[in-house]
Amino acid sequence: MNGVHAMLVHFPLAFWALATLMILAGVFLSGRFAELSRAGLLPVLVFSLLGAVAGLVSGWLVWPAEANLYSPLARNHILMAIWSLAIYSSITLLIWRFGALMFQGTQRWALVVLALAGGLLFAITGTLGGHLAGSPTHFSQLLAAFGWTVYETFYVPDAVLVALLLLAIIAAGVGLTAKTGDKG
């Protein structure tokens, strides 16, 4: 299953990388290329999600479930992969519901932030996958320079979890309380 997983994850990684570039092109460029990027983004995102689901399922089956949970590297790989999927799912839903509107006005910055965050997450996911396959890269040294050794499980204390939940509530609440015609 390890080989199958290595093959399948190329699809979401390629689509996510492409989607990130299309978002940046759609936001910052003008002309035919930018129009194509905006128009073609949704299919790329949909394919990326399909590939990601296949990658996650095949990845979970590489090792016994117990080994997945006992390995700090595997735990980190799983966490980053699921977060990558979540953030690109968010982008997909926004593009699906609001289309070209997402590339206009100030809201385009939301796309940029989400795409860059997603890009960072899937880069970390891929790096961890390389470690697990026995092919570490120097990118993990960059992460270490910023304070995280990839061999250590990524988790935070309960107090931080509470703070994160509050941030989630604030983010949802800010959107929920917005009124039509609100110019800020």
């Binding site: 839903l93 994160l164 604030i170």
Partner: peptide, 16 residues
């Protein structure tokens, strides 16, 4: 972490 992303998505969705 997923809930945080959900909160952000929900907020953005409502704004949009």
């Amino acid at each position: 972490g997923l809930l945080l992303m959900l909160g952000v998505w929900f907020g953005l969705h409502r704004l949009m």
